[in-house]
Design a binder for these strands. Sequence first.
DNA 1: TTCATATATTCAAATAATCAAATAATCGAA
DNA 2: TTCGATTATTTGATTATTTGAATATATGAA
Lengths: 117, 117
Amino acid sequence: MMDEMESALHRFKAEFFKALGHPLRLAILDSLREDEKSVSALQEALGAEQSTLSQQLGVLRQRGFIEARKEGTAVYYRTVDPDVYAFLDLGRAIFERQLEQSGALLGRIRGEGEAVR
Amino acid sequence: MMDEMESALHRFKAEFFKALGHPLRLAILDSLREDEKSVSALQEALGAEQSTLSQQLGVLRQRGFIEARKEGTAVYYRTVDPDVYAFLDLGRAIFERQLEQSGALLGRIRGEGEAVR
DNA sequence: TTCATATATTCAAATAATCAAATAATCGAA
DNA sequence: TTCGATTATTTGATTATTTGAATATATGAA
């Protein structure tokens, strides 16, 4: 039987993965790869509702993925630990293999020339 | 604005992460690190209800993380792509740093000597 | 001040995920 | 066959997550 400590760890890890289990949150992180961005810049870039965006930014901030800097009336978000991108990219590699195996729709996603992450 | 292809990719990736965003599913994967295991062995090891376990095995299988082999009346599950463990471990490293930064409860989890994943 | 802009928070509704009990399906042994 | 063991599926109840509209808050400019 699993001991308590181990399952506590699994609970924490699950929280970590859950934070990444949302399209908009992934899009936000990708959007912050090169530079910090203001909320309105993200809104423009991602085409999300203001309140929705703000809420998902809150999730990512709570879980420690991003942090905020205030400048006048704007708030700029940036990635706390750039290593998450290595992690996300490794995730992509693995999940691409899964898709390939299931003979899936990767072609459409991967596209040609397009630098898609 | 994000184009459709990119957001489709984010949706797929989110599904991938979401599959990992559950304590029992993580425990299952960890349990399958070294060897395949039957459902009843997992049930014993993880202390989960039979139906709950079977359901979560189904999620992991659907998403392509594990696959099944039938032997008599037992079903043995194994990890499809062992590289997911490198991925999970990298995830752990990153999320540990997040915890440390937030001054958190990692000590208790990490324990001494105990090989916790 | 007051106003406009940017962001966060609250709220309610809709949807999705989780759980465990009950039932079904499968298989080997008697 | 029938029985027992193993696993999967269905079901209903519960809880969690997501969404956008509405409202609140903060800040700088006039």
